[in-house]
C-alpha cells in the first residue's frame, strides 16, 4: 500500500499527496482513478453480481408471481366455495321449503285422517248412544210397566178386599148361584 501511495505521489509531481489543493475538490488523479475504479467496480458488479441479482430478482418475481397465483387460486377457490355455499344455501332453502311443504301435507293428511277418525268415532258413539237410549227407554218402560203392574196389583188387592162388604159378598154368591143355574 505504501508503495502504491509512493507511486501515486511520484506521479503527482512531487508535492505532498496528503495535502489537497482545494478544500472542496480532490486531486485530479484521484478523480481519474476514482472514476476508473468506480467504473471498474460497476463493471465487475454488472458482470458478476448482475446475474446473481437478476436471478434473485427473477426468483423473487417468480415467488411473488407464485404468491399472486396462489392468491388468485385461493380467491378462485373461495369464490367457488362461496358459490357452493350460495348453492348449498339455495339448496337448504329449497330443502326447507320441501320439508315445510311435506310437513304441511302430512299435517293436512293427519288432520284429515283425524277428522275422519273423529267423525267415525262420533258416528259410532251416536249409533251406540241411540242403541243405549233405546235400550234404556225400553228398560225404563218395562220397569215402569212392571212398577205400575205391581202397584196396580197391590191396589187391586187393597181396593177389592176393602170393597167386599157383606152386601157385596151376598151379591157375589147370588150371582154365582144364578150363573150356575143358568148354565144348564
Amino acid at each position: 500500500m505504501n508503495a502504491i501511495i509512493r507511486f501515486i505521489g511520484s506521479a503527482g509531481g512531487g508535492h505532498d499527496i496528503t495535502q489537497t489543493p482545494s478544500t472542496l475538490w480532490p486531486e485530479r488523479y484521484e478523480i481519474i482513478f476514482g472514476s476508473f475504479a468506480s467504473v471498474l467496480i460497476f463493471a465487475l458488479l454488472f458482470k458478476f453480481a448482475g446475474p446473481v441479482i437478476k436471478k434473485g430478482m427473477a426468483g423473487r418475481t417468480a415467488k411473488i408471481q407464485a404468491e399472486l397465483d396462489a392468491g388468485e387460486a385461493a380467491r378462485a377457490a373461495a369464490e367457488t366455495e362461496a358459490a357452493q355455499i350460495r348453492t348449498a344455501k339455495g339448496d337448504i332453502g329449497a330443502e326447507r321449503t320441501r320439508i315445510l311443504a311435506e310437513a304441511d301435507a302430512q299435517a293436512i293428511t293427519i288432520r284429515e285422517d283425524g277428522r275422519a277418525r273423529v267423525a267415525a268415532e262420533i258416528a259410532d258413539l251416536e249409533a251406540r248412544s241411540v242403541v243405549d237410549i233405546a235400550a234404556a227407554h225400553s228398560r225404563v218402560g218395562d220397569e215402569l210397566r212392571a212398577e205400575i203392574a205391581r202397584l196396580s196389583i197391590a191396589a187391586v188387592d187393597h181396593v177389592v178386599t176393602g170393597s167386599l162388604d157383606d152386601a157385596t159378598q151376598q151379591e157375589l154368591i147370588e150371582n154365582f148361584i144364578s150363573r150356575v143355574g143358568a148354565s144348564a
Binding site: A149, L164, I173, F176, V180
Partner: peptide
Amino acid sequence: LGGIVATVGDTVIDGSVRTRIDQLKSRL
C-alpha cells in the same frame, strides 16, 4: 175373598174374587 168355587168330581166352577184378581194380575 168373595164369590164361590164349586168342585164336583173333576169339574170346577170358579166364581171367586181370588181367581178374578189372579187373572187380572196375570194380565197386568
